[in-house]
């Protein structure tokens, strides 16, 4: 049984069906890539997995570590060990990165974390993501550049140590250096902590740094192709349009 099991998921937003029966399994220690053209429903899936209130599940279920979380509150999913690195992280004015992290960590615990322990964890994450210390005293995402926002997402992921993380286009908008840092950070968490990752991406770039074991292609709200890393290469050669024609012909 996989840690995260998505079964026949149908999702609607504003009366429009966006996901039309998605099945997907992700477990700790696995790296999955979910690829698909713009508008295919990738972010819809990511948001739905964390319980965004605007997305209505009309059919199907989500199970996490054996618990049905289809109806759970977002914070319960987070506490259970799911994480979403947002495609467009919003700013939280008035709260520093460090203070926010402390709150998020404490939300998962019975006893508040000791100052010393928190500091050492933070230092570890700072080193991993190659940010400077001043970064953590800035207000979360407030006035951050695109690259800083993505680093802040991965910094939070490192600190919260989820079992399964969904990374929604964390690669887009990053220059090559930032991309490498972020990708290596994810790779290390995968290797050191056994993080399971669902890497959502539109391009292949990030997959040069993190090799997925499983690749899924989402089109029009359905997973139309599944395979190994060879699918990435095929996509690189053929493009989405050709794949769409092939699977469309088969459907």
């Amino acid at each position: 049984m996989a840690d995260l099991e998505i079964r026949d998921l149908h999702v609607r937003i504003e009366e429009r069906e966006i996901l039309r029966g998605v099945d997907l399994d992700v477990s700790r220690g696995e790296v999955h890539a979910l690829m698909g053209p713009n508008g295919s429903g990738k972010s819809t899936l990511a948001n739905t997995l964390l319980g965004h209130p605007s997305y209505e599940i009309t059919e199907g279920s989500i199970t996490f570590k054996g618990q049905d979380i289809t109806e759970s509150e977002p914070h319960e999913r987070a506490k259970a060990g799911l994480f979403l690195a947002f495609q467009y992280p919003v700013s939280i004015p008035g709260v520093s990165v460090a203070n926010f992290l402390r709150m998020a960590i404490n939300a998962k615990r019975e006893e508040p974390i000791q100052v010393k322990e928190f500091r050492s964890q933070l230092q570890h994450a700072i080193d991993l993501l190659d940010v400077d210390k001043a970064f953590t005293s800035r207000h979360l995402n407030d006035g951050f550049s695109g690259g800083e926002k993505k680093r802040a997402e991965i910094l939070q992921m490192a600190m919260l140590a989820p079992d399964v993380a969904i990374l929604d286009e964390t690669d887009s908008g990053l220059d090559i250096d930032a991309l490498r840092t972020v990708a290596e950070g994810v790779q290390r968490l995968h290797e050191e902590q056994g993080l399971g990752a669902l890497i959502i991406t539109h391009y292949q770039r990030i997959l040069h740094y993190i090799k997925p074991q499983f690749v899924h292609i989402l089109m029009d709200g359905r997973i139309v192709l599944q395979g190994g890393v060879e699918l990435v290469e095929r996509l690189e050669r053929e493009g989405y349009d050709q794949i769409r024609q092939e699977v469309g012909a088969g459907a």
Binding site: L50, H75, I92, V95, F100
Partner: peptide, 22 residues
């Protein structure tokens, strides 16, 4: 912003509090 914070484990009242305090 509330959903963002909830997705990090804060419950709704805690998230609201962060926003208003901020």
């Amino acid at each position: 912003a509330i959903f963002y914070m909830q997705s990090r484990g804060l419950d709704r009242p805690a998230a609201v509090r962060v926003i208003v305090e901020g």
